[in-house]
Amino acid sequence: MRSEPRASISLKVAAFVGLVFLHAPLALIVLYAFTTEEKSFQFPPPGYTTRWFSAAWFDRPDIWPPLWLSLKVALLATLIALVLGTLAAAALWRARFFGKDSISLLFILPIALPGIITGIALRSAFDIMNVPFSTWTIVLGHATFCIVVVYNNALARFRRLSGNMIEASMDLGADGFQTFRHVVLPQIGSALLAGGMLAFALSFDEVIVTTFTAGQQSTLPIWMLNELIRPRQRPVTNVVAIIVIAVTFLPILAAYYLTREGEHTGGSGK
């Protein structure tokens, strides 16, 4: 056992400052939701109030339709991504076939290229084929980049699944379906759940692609974008931002613990 390395003071400070840089802005969002000043971003806030929470709930009916649309889109996109991403990971995991590397690159492409390209590409395709904008055009775009998230999570877990595991199950008399149910699914289940949650979070606050595929519809992030450009009650935007943070934070946290647990059991087979 070698002696524990010690970080120098300057490294500690630099790392700490970096983390503050990452988190302070999110804390400010919360702070500004309680300010009494609604016309500017005065700091420190001149006073504190909770009335924006009730204002968001009662006085702003324009928040609700975008919220429902965002939830609906995120749910549909996640379901599609779960099915397609898992299938893709299962196919590319063990099989060896021509063009395998190109196909795996293809699945990563939607997050490797800037979102604006995905957005405008879909917009062009809808335009050429005269597809009218609808919930489904948004879902189409979201599912495309959500597939990658599920695919990556599933593939990482598949890779940790020892190849012999499936052979061992078949050797003990289980056919393909029984092996999937008793051996494969229990071991990749938490990774799928994690991938699904990340996909949900990603879809719920996606704005870049959505602007191009939504037409006149408004998801919650598009509603926020409009508020940023033409603000009405600034603190209400903060309240909505807190909702967005909460809706994305919880699945991400859950996903983290799910995959961590998976690492634990997965690694124990070695």
Binding site: S162, N164, M165, E167, A168, S169, M170, D171, L172, G173, A174, D175, V183, P186, Q187, T265, G266, S268, G269, K270
Partner: peptide, 20 residues
């Protein structure tokens, strides 16, 4: 004939025990 239709069983080199 698939493995699950053969009355033979295997002890694997890395044991392949189901971790879950």
């Amino acid at each position: 004939l698939p493995p699950y239709r053969r009355n033979v069983n295997t002890v694997f080199q890395d044991y392949a025990l189901f971790p879950h």
